[in-house]
Each structure stands twice: as structure tokens, then as C-alpha cells.
Computed example of a mutant assay.
Amino acid sequence: MSITTKLLHTIALVCIAAVGVALVSQHVFDMQPCAWCVLQRLIYIVIALVCWVGVLVLRPGLGHRIVGGTTLILGLLGVMAAWYQYTVAAQMFSCAQTFADRFMVASGLDAGFPWLFGIYATCMDARVNLIGIEYALWSMGLFAVVAFLSALVLIRKR
């Protein structure tokens, strides 16, 4: 197994673990998600799927670089979403009609998979600390790690 394949598997597993932690937080510890929270879950899942499709379908080399570039962009979008949640949305009484809310509702994912993508809290109510650090900052840091690992895949030579 090549280094790029291992990196892609690692990125995918980290993303799935992040969603798993979010689901445990929601369903076990009653930390209800806001629209920006579930949008970030979607980004993590898409990154994992892109990584695994890249490993299973695409050939190493150019195929893995395409995956690396795609996941780098998605990771940076995740950083932006988490940053917006932390700096703007968390200060609002409601995140209704923000991009995240409109996107998740328009996609139908919130109604189709409410246990995963249901929006049950306002952004202000969803401000939760984990070991003294807000969830949004943990997510932003994890997206930064994903983006860094994706950049390694992108620039790695065969």
C-alpha cells in the first residue's frame, strides 16, 4: 500500500470518526446540532467518500492527486464553515435562513436523515465546549488537519 493510499484512508477515517463523535454527542449527551454543525458533518462525509472512491476506483498518481486537490478544497470549505459558525452564526439568535440552513433544507437531507442531518438547535444554543474549547474550533482544527494531509497527497510524488 502506497503512502498516498494510506493518507487517503487516514483522512477518510478521521472524517468518519469526527461524525461519530458528533453523533455520540448528540444522541448520548443531548448536544443538539445547528445548521452549521450538520453542514460540517456533510462535508466530513463527502471528504471520506471522495477519499475512498479515489482509493478504490482511481489509479495512483494523477487520480490520487485529483482526490488530494478535491479534499483540500473541501477541507478549506470546512475550515470556513467552522470559522463562520464560531465568529458569526454563534452570535445570532437564529441561524435560520443562513446558507447552511437553506442548503441543508433544500437538499432534503435534514428530513431524509434526521438522526444525522436534523437541525435541532439555533447556532447560539449549539455553542458547546468540549474540554474548554468550543466544538466549532475543534472542527475547524480537524478540517485544517484534513486540508494539510490532503495537501501532502496532492504534492506527493509517485
Rank of each mutant, 00 (worst) to 15 (best):
L76I: 13
A96E: 03
R102W: 03
L109K: 07
A106N: 11
L76C: 12
A81N: 05
W83A: 05
G68Q: 09
V79E: 11
S107G: 09
G68R: 08
W83D: 04
T98S: 06
G112Q: 15
Y86R: 13
G75F: 09
A111S: 15
I73T: 13
G69L: 11
T87F: 08
D101W: 14
V79Q: 11
Q97W: 06
G78M: 02
G108Q: 12
R102A: 03
R102K: 11
S107D: 07
M92H: 04
D101K: 08
M104G: 00
G112M: 10
Q91N: 13
G69F: 14
G75V: 06
L77Y: 08
R102V: 05
F103M: 00
Q97G: 01
F99E: 03
D110V: 07
T98A: 02
F93A: 10
T87M: 09
L109Y: 07
C95V: 00
A96C: 01
V79G: 10
M104R: 01
T87Q: 12
V67S: 12
A96G: 02
V105P: 01
D101P: 08
M104V: 02
A96K: 03
Q91E: 15
A96I: 00
L109R: 06
V105K: 07
V67G: 11
D101G: 05
I73C: 08
G78K: 01
A100F: 09
S107T: 15
F99N: 02
M92A: 05
M104F: 01
A90H: 09
A106R: 14
A100E: 13
M104Y: 01
T70K: 12
G78S: 04
G75P: 09
D110F: 03
L77I: 08
V67F: 12
G68S: 08
I73S: 11
A96Y: 00
A96F: 00
S107M: 12
Y84K: 05
T98N: 02
G78F: 03
F93N: 12
Q91D: 13
T71A: 08
D110Q: 14
A81E: 02
M92N: 06
T70I: 14
M104T: 00
F99H: 06
L74D: 06
T98I: 02
A90C: 10
G78Y: 03
A106H: 10
Q91G: 13
D110S: 14
T71E: 09
F103S: 00
D101E: 10
A111K: 15
S94Q: 06
T71C: 14
Y84N: 09
T70S: 15
V79W: 13
A96V: 00
T70P: 08
F99T: 03
L74A: 13
Y84I: 07
